[in-house]
């Protein structure tokens, strides 16, 4: 049982990692917590659902994931254009970003509620059997799928960030935007790339969460809180801190739910976040201790 809980926890944590990383990458560049991320997750979960449901025989899962990722990118760039770009051009305080992102998050959730608020939408079954066995150990098919997809995405993302030219530019701008520009780095391109990455991550995590749970308008908001906790514990804006923190969070959540039930668990999780903020506000990674919004 312990092993199954552990795998289930890692699987859940890996989705939190996708959310936390999408959150952290925007924070690292623009120094604000992009709460619109939750709205995008909900919207993408619906998009993925209707995409799959629109076929007689559902397309392979990876097609849905890719399609939704692209929709996430488009949505993120659109939100950036209508809500954030003007704030940037005017070099307004970070607080304006914060307000704009909360507004967008609420807006998306309410629009979804108006149209789809009455029902819960369940993704069509992907697997014929919900569990499979390796030896005598039983695994959940959907948890395993989520784990594999998340790990692949995270690996690709870490490769892009650590090994490519644009990844280096993103890290440089996160450290010092003014000096990065003196290196010839176009900070507008970096910002757009970061929103595109965050959008793709929101899209993918939306589909994964939609297949695990059912789809409802506040799905993203409730999940994003977990991503937020993870990125606070990892150190806001730190990708290397967010991933282990998110996986840890997933494991802790699953075990706590098993022991304490699903009602008491969030209380403990938020308690952990508060303790972290009190004793180690810079998070596991120790970066970006300041400028928390």
């Amino acid at each position: 049982m312990t092993l199954q809980l552990l795998i289930s926890g890692i699987s859940l944590g890996s989705v939190y990692a996708l959310i936390a990383v999408g959150f952290a990458i925007v924070f690292s560049i623009l120094r604000f917590s992009n709460f619109a991320h939750g709205g995008m997750i909900s919207a993408c979960a619906f998009i993925g659902y209707f995409f799959q449901a629109s076929f007689e025989t559902p397309p392979p899962f990876y097609v849905t994931v890719l399609f939704t990722a692209v929709c996430g990118v488009v949505m993120a760039l659109f939100i950036d254009t209508i809500a954030y770009r003007r704030i940037r051009k005017k070099q307004a305080p970070t607080l304006y970003y914060f307000l704009a992102s909360i507004t967008i998050a609420i807006l998306i959730e309410q629009i979804l509620s108006v149209f789809f608020g009455k029902n819960l939408y369940g993704y069509p079954q992907i697997f014929e059997s919900t569990t499979f066995y390796i030896g005598s150990i039983r695994f959940s098919s959907i948890d395993t799928l989520i784990l594999v997809v998340s790990l692949v995405i995270l690996t690709v993302l870490l490769f892009v960030i650590n090994k490519t030219r644009i990844g280096l530019a993103i890290r440089a701008v996160a450290i010092d935007p003014a000096t990065s520009r003196l290196m010839g780095i176009n900070s507008d391109v970096v910002i757009i790339t970061v929103f595109a990455i965050a959008g793709a991550l929101a899209g993918i995590s939306g589909v994964l969460l939609g297949t695990k749970y059912s789809v409802y308008p506040s799905l993203g908001a409730s999940m994003m809180i977990k991503g937020f906790i993870a990125s606070v514990i990892g150190g806001l804006g730190s990708l290397s801190g967010a991933i282990p923190a998110a996986i840890l969070l997933g494991v802790v959540e699953i075990f706590l739910t098993y022991w304490l039930g699903s009602l008491a668990t969030p209380i403990v999780l938020f308690g952990i976040m508060l303790v972290f903020l009190a004793i180690r506000p810079e998070g596991i990674s120790g970066k970006f201790a300041k400028d928390k919004v």
Partner: peptide, 12 residues
């Protein structure tokens, strides 16, 4: 860029 390696600094 503190936090990047010497070589990454050169690459920027």
């Amino acid at each position: 860029f503190a936090g990047l390696t010497v070589e990454e600094n050169l690459r920027t």
